[in-house]
Design a protein around this nucleic acid. Structure first.
Lengths: 110, 110
DNA sequence: GATAATGTTCGTAATTTTGCGAACAACGAA
DNA sequence: TTCGTTGTTCGCAAAATTACGAACATTATC
């Protein structure tokens, strides 16, 4: 399904808000961009990309993982983070459906 | 421009995070949905739709306004809120571009 | 086994967010 | 003018977020 096909999604407002909240911080957007562009997927490289302490990076990664947008696996002694593709697609569809729901004709405003 | 055309947007991570943050709360998603579906655009009706105090609703509306997703105008004695269509489209494009940036081939993960 | 490298967790502090009731401001109507 | 309606702002409290360094755990390597 590409982004122009009709979507049957019934948006779960709670879920959409959870995705949005996870994306609501510049560092986390940067992390997601980094992973989406496949520059690397190891903690160390993510950390190097950001001007914040590793404890903080770890915390942001945890939040993204809790929101379901990424996965984390141990590849000793490193930790590999990846975009959670299934949920990524779900988030994409949710946002897309949400924004597309805006009606053209506006009887109230304007 | 529909959602399938190539987009030349250079995403501003800060701006995207700001949009996401504003959307990162169920009540604010509900407000945006309400306005997008043109059910009404007056404060009172928005308030009736939500199980929270009017002071809190007013606060959420302020945040959405600060993020640029809605506008607020006084129509005494009521206040009318509307989707800020220009910024709405901008946010839509930002999210769309962001999610679409995920590479298909993944050399690192999976 | 000792050491180095890699991340997570803990404890703490500062700030922000969320939410409420009460007080207040602005305006239309009686 | 007075009153009722409509929302905003204020003051406060509780909770969550953000960030850091230090301590800790794990594993690879010497």
């Amino acid at each position: 399904m590409n982004c122009c096909e009709k979507q049957e999604y019934t948006i779960d407002n709670e879920q959409l808000a959870r995705f949005a909240k996870a994306m609501g911080h510049p560092s986390r957007i940067a992390i997601l961009s980094f992973l989406a562009n496949l520059d690397s997927c190891y903690f160390g490289d993510i950390h190097n990309e950001l001007p914040i302490a590793k404890a903080t990076v770890s915390q942001h990664l945890k939040e993204l993982k809790d929101a379901g947008l990424i996965t984390g696996t141990i590849e000793a002694p490193k930790v590999k983070y990846c975009i959670h593709r299934e949920n990524w697609a779900k988030a994409q569809a949710y946002f897309n459906t949400f924004f597309a729901s805006l009606k053209e004709k506006d009887l109230c405003c304007e």
